[in-house]
């Protein structure tokens, strides 16, 4: 499988590594990471920065007895430990169509062959349907399915949107986006993506709480509003 050529960029990866991204945006970044060893490596480096920053924090003493209380809890736990799922588990065949963490969010929606069922899709515009996965204050995260050759109408909004292609693809004046590619869109960009002839399935999330004003730092290079 080819590796993605459109990435979240360092700013979003640091937000993800630090834990400052909302759930939907984190899901988009992590889904891209499942396709992208380079961004996995970049995030592990940024987590190492988090570890180093934690180590240099000024320690704040705990109340006396904290360790003893915890040790008593360990006694009650007994020897059983939280075992991870064994890593040598039999590989399912065929392999899952969608990677984790996305797959967990699709529970109950996947047919026996691992494809998305036909139910639950809601009309967005002609040729475009969506399923909401997460609704939070920051915005809605959803799967969007487009038929081939569908053009997304231009319009503006106040946040940043992340779009990860899962199947098929789309193109705009910035290039072609295929499986695993992550497009970052903000309101400074005005363009009209069109889905590839075979159509497009993607994950679409909003980073909420943004009230960007003025033309500052619009280095993020996409705007796609489905």
């Amino acid at each position: 499988m080819t590796r993605p050529s459109h990435h979240p960029g360092d700013m979003l990866l640091i937000d993800y590594a630090g834990g400052g991204l909302c759930e939907g945006a984190s899901l988009a970044v992590a889904t891209h990471m499942a396709y992208c060893p380079a961004c996995r490596h970049a995030v592990s480096e940024m987590e190492a920065v988090g570890g180093a920053l934690l180590d240099e924090l000024e320690p704040e003493p705990l109340s006396p007895g904290c360790l003893e209380a915890l040790m008593a809890r360990l006694d009650r736990e007994g020897p059983r430990t939280e075992r991870p799922a064994p890593s040598c588990r039999a590989a399912p065949f065929p392999p899952p169509r969608y990677p984790e963490p996305l797959r967990s969010y699709l529970r109950g929606r996947l047919a026996a062959d691992g494809t998305l069922g036909a139910g639950g899709w809601r009309f967005i515009q002609p040729g475009m349907r969506g399923i909401n996965l997460i609704s939070e204050a920051a915005g809605t995260t959803r799967l969007v399915r487009m038929r081939g050759g569908v053009a997304v109408p231009r319009h503006t909004h106040g946040g940043i949107e992340l779009t990860v292609v899962l199947e098929g693809g789309f193109s705009d004046e910035f290039g072609s986006f295929g499986p695993g590619d992550l497009a970052v869109g903000d309101c400074s960009l005005n363009h009209a993506p069109v889905s590839d002839p075979e159509g497009c399935l993607c994950l679409n999330a909003t980073i909420g709480g943004l009230r960007l004003t003025g033309p500052v730092g619009r280095l993020l290079n996409r705007f796609i509003r489905f």
Partner: peptide, 13 residues
């Protein structure tokens, strides 16, 4: 939730 990859996921590239 904190969405994270599963390093053992067969679907991981």
């Amino acid at each position: 939730q904190r969405p994270e990859i599963d390093p053992d996921d067969p679907a991981l590239v």
